[in-house]
């Protein structure tokens, strides 16, 4: 048996613990193949050691708690939806209440102020015109 054949046969074994006599013979004379066999054994003892670890019995409790928590709708989904609906509602309420305090029709006072300003700008003698307007306004009142 040569080294290549040994390695192929070793890879075809499900467990390397017990080697056939012909392979045993080979590792007796080949240090390199002996090292490969030892490392393969090391790998399988590592696997055996890892798979004998036991899972904590609390895992079931943790899993069921997570599942039951996720099942409650208000926790994850409900709150953000409620917050956004409330903010939209408050925003709309803000717009409507603001429109209650603004009068869409221009008032008479605003009109007269505008007339006074226009007269002032387009008159030849703005000083006296202004005085007269103010006096007249006072008289009318």
């Amino acid at each position: 048996m040569n080294c290549k054949e040994f390695k192929n046969q070793l890879a075809s074994l499900e467990q390397p613990d017990t080697l056939p006599p012909v392979m045993h013979e080979h590792i007796g004379t080949c240090a390199s193949c002996r090292s490969v066999w030892e490392k393969t054994q090391m790998l399988f003892s590592f696997v055996t050691e890892e798979k004998t670890r036991k899972v904590s019995s609390f895992v079931t409790t943790r899993i069921m708690a997570e599942i039951e928590d996720a099942g409650r709708p208000s926790g994850v989904l409900g709150r953000p939806v409620l917050v956004s609906v409330l903010s939209v509602f408050l925003l709309l309420l803000g717009f409507f209440s603001a429109s209650l305090f603004t009068n869409p029709q221009p008032s008479a006072l605003a009109d007269s102020t505008e007339n006074i300003a226009t007269d002032y700008f387009f008159s030849d003698n703005p000083g006296s015109q202004l005085e007269e307007i103010w006096l007249n306004t006072y008289t009318y009142e």
């Binding site: 890892e50 798979k51 670890r53 899972v55 895992v59 079931t60 069921m64 599942i67």
Partner: peptide, 20 residues
């Protein structure tokens, strides 16, 4: 959830071994 909990108990060790 009770039925699922039985399944968890039944398979938790196998799944854990896979994860290991």
């Amino acid at each position: 959830t009770g039925a699922f909990s039985v399944l968890v108990d039944r398979y938790r060790q196998k799944v854990f071994q896979t994860c290991m």
